[in-house]
């Protein structure tokens, strides 16, 4: 059974077709990179996976649970699907430690001590142990994003969704975040990443999905995507972003 199964998903804003008949899947332990021009629907698709965006047609299964089904306990499903956002979305009024523990305590019901130990261990892993007492507003963008990854990991996710995790970062901070993601991928985490970081895709992705106008235009193995012929649209896109 795939970890994430997306079957013929369609979504409309009024008459506008944001997602058209999208079908793909992510196997356990796989790393999938989703790319495409802005407005192609890639962020929308990834937000459909944990039900942050509703969709009108098709079906999405996460670890066998249907996301769109009326009876699904979405909170429960989301609690073990980690998500990292473009703008970090740390909770600004909580210290870094509180950011790392609140979900564990309030959602998973862990004890405060246990949650704290776990949070600090993960903070150490992303290289920010010394900042535990600070507040998000006192950290740089790259540091905030690493905390956000640690926060998602603290919930012991069965898979991770990344929605353009480096697009809001200054160039010099992108690598510190990508390093954490690469490490995570190598440890076998199931990951679905919306990103334009083709270096990251080359290094760790199993497959690359290319989207345009709400459709999955290309869904290929990494080597195939970067090597052999593929759709014109994807070629143009790659030519534009790889030339620099």
């Amino acid at each position: 059974m795939p970890m994430i199964e997306i079957k013929n998903v369609g979504k409309w804003y009024g008459d506008f077709n944001v997602l058209a008949d999208c079908t793909t899947q992510v196997e356990k332990g796989e790393v999938i990179v989703v790319c495409g021009p802005s407005g192609s629907g890639k962020s929308t698709l990834i937000k459909c996976v944990n039900g942050l965006e509703p969709f009108q047609k098709g079906e999405i299964l996460v670890n066998g649970t249907s996301v769109g089904a009326p009876g699904t306990n979405l909170s429960r499903l989301r609690s073990h699907v980690g998500m990292v956002f473009q703008h970090f979305e740390l909770f600004p009024h909580m210290s870094i430690t509180e950011n790392l523990t609140i979900g564990q305590v309030k959602v998973l019901g862990r004890g405060k001590e246990e949650a704290r130990d776990k949070g600090l261990k993960l903070l150490d892993r992303v290289g920010l142990k010394a900042h535990a007492h600070k507040f998000p507003g006192q950290l740089s963008g790259g540091q905030q994003q690493r905390v956000a990854i640690a926060r998602a990991l603290a919930m012991d996710p069965i898979c991770m969704l990344f929605d353009e995790p480096t697009s809001a970062l200054d160039p010099e901070m992108i690598n510190e975040v990508l390093d954490v993601m690469v490490q995570l991928a190598k440890e076998g985490m199931t990951m679905m990443c919306v990103t334009h970081e083709m270096g990251f895709a080359r290094k760790v992705a199993n497959r690359v999905i290319f989207m345009d106008h709400g459709r999955i235009v290309e869904d290929a193995d990494k080597d195939e995507f970067f090597g052999t012929p593929r759709s014109d649209r994807a070629q143009q896109f790659l030519a534009k972003i790889l030339n620099h």
């Binding site: 942050l52 989301r78 073990h80 998500m83 956002f85 703008h87 979305e89 909770f91 959602v107 919930m155």
Partner: peptide, 21 residues
């Protein structure tokens, strides 16, 4: 930011918990 609500929900908070915390 709209993402704050999403971040709360994505963590597994219910809507009332997202407001509260």
């Amino acid at each position: 930011p709209r993402g704050q609500r999403m971040a709360g929900l994505a963590m597994g908070f219910t809507l009332p918990q997202t407001y509260r915390f």
